[in-house]
């Protein structure tokens, strides 16, 4: 029971952690990460397309990441280049992505709600990892993306807080005008942050369709991109914090699937983490602040 719960929690947490780490890059360069939802849908859908046509989940992963980047670039084009309000540009990305997926499902497979089954990332059930004592049972249901995710989070944290490029990136987010005055190409940093956000949110989407499942179903992201925006706040815009935040939400989601008890309504159970986080966010609203240059442009 506990093993099941832990294993399910890990599986549910990966997409949250990936997309939120992406969102961290976006917020750190001063752009609201509202578009994560759309980038995740793009990643989930095009991941399946890639795997469908090539037969390899790895090609699918690349396609999903690329799709995430394309949607991120749209967000960047609208917000960074054409100075659209970041909330609206995020909404644009989400609207376009939620509209495109069902249309393409219809056009490619003539099906309104789901894709055919494709090759996905296999789990570790038949490998030596599953035979390890204690953790073997948990690892048996995981796949390679779990380790990739942990590596990404660590690299993201080192990059943001321990390298000069990360420092510059954060400076662009805090004070874009000052950053460009000292000679940084603030626009370029903003685009890089946005691209990283798209790539990671896209990868999060890929995990949903090729890691947890082996197909795309309409509405499969189920607002996870929005939750990532929220996790980002409670994790203090820090990649390492996203692990805790992701696991928190994933735990309740896992609980829902593990406890198949009719007396506890699944929808009611899922409200708990939302209400708790809402309270935390509201109370700490004046303490956990986003970068000061949020939504600001370097030439204003």
């Amino acid at each position: 029971m506990i093993v099941l719960l832990v294993a399910a929690t890990l599986r549910m947490a990966v997409p949250y952690i990936l997309a939120t780490t992406g969102g961290t890059f976006s917020v750190r360069v001063g752009i609201t990460d509202l578009g994560c939802e759309g980038m995740m849908i793009g990643g989930a859908f095009f991941g399946v397309i890639g795997s469908y046509y090539s037969g390899s989940p790895w090609i699918g992963m690349l396609c999903g990441i690329l799709a995430g980047i394309v949607f991120a670039l749209l967000n960047g084009l609208l917000h960074i280049t054409f100075k659209v309000n970041p909330a609206i540009s995020g909404v644009c990305v989400n609207l376009l992505s939620t509209a495109l997926a069902p249309l393409l499902l219809k056009l490619i497979w003539n099906n309104e709600s789901m894709s055919p089954i494709v090759n996905n990332f296999g789990n570790f059930a038949d490998t030596w990892l599953a035979e390890l004592p204690v953790v073997g049972e948990i690892l048996a249901t995981q796949n390679i993306l779990l380790f990739i995710t942990l590596a990404i989070v660590l690299i993201a944290w080192i990059f943001l807080f321990k390298t000069k490029y990360g420092l510059r990136m954060r400076m662009v987010g805090e004070a874009p005008v000052a950053a460009s005055t000292v000679g940084l190409n603030a626009i370029r940093y903003k685009y890089i942050g946005e691209i990283l956000c798209g790539a990671l949110a896209g990868l999060g989407g890929v995990y949903l369709s090729l890691g947890q499942l082996n197909m795309f179903t309409e509405g499969m992201t189920a607002g996870r991109g929005y939750i990532c925006m929220v996790i980002n706040v409670i994790s203090g815009y820090n990649p390492l914090g996203t692990i805790a935040g992701g696991i928190f939400f994933a735990f309740f989601e896992a609980l829902r699937t593990v406890i198949q008890n009719a007396a506890i309504n699944a929808n009611f159970l899922m409200m708990i983490p939302y209400i708790m986080t809402l309270i935390v966010i509201v109370i700490s609203a004046r303490r956990i602040l986003p970068p000061a240059g949020m939504g600001k442009h370097p030439d204003e």
């Binding site: 509202l34 607002g223 939302y274």
Partner: peptide
């Protein structure tokens, strides 16, 4: 509380969607 409406509206959307589904 100074909570940004982008975050709170999105959260309330999710909470209400779950509540009415319940």
């Amino acid at each position: 509380f100074g909570a940004r409406e982008i975050i709170t509206t999105v959260m309330l959307n999710e909470i209400i969607a779950l509540l009415v589904a319940y």
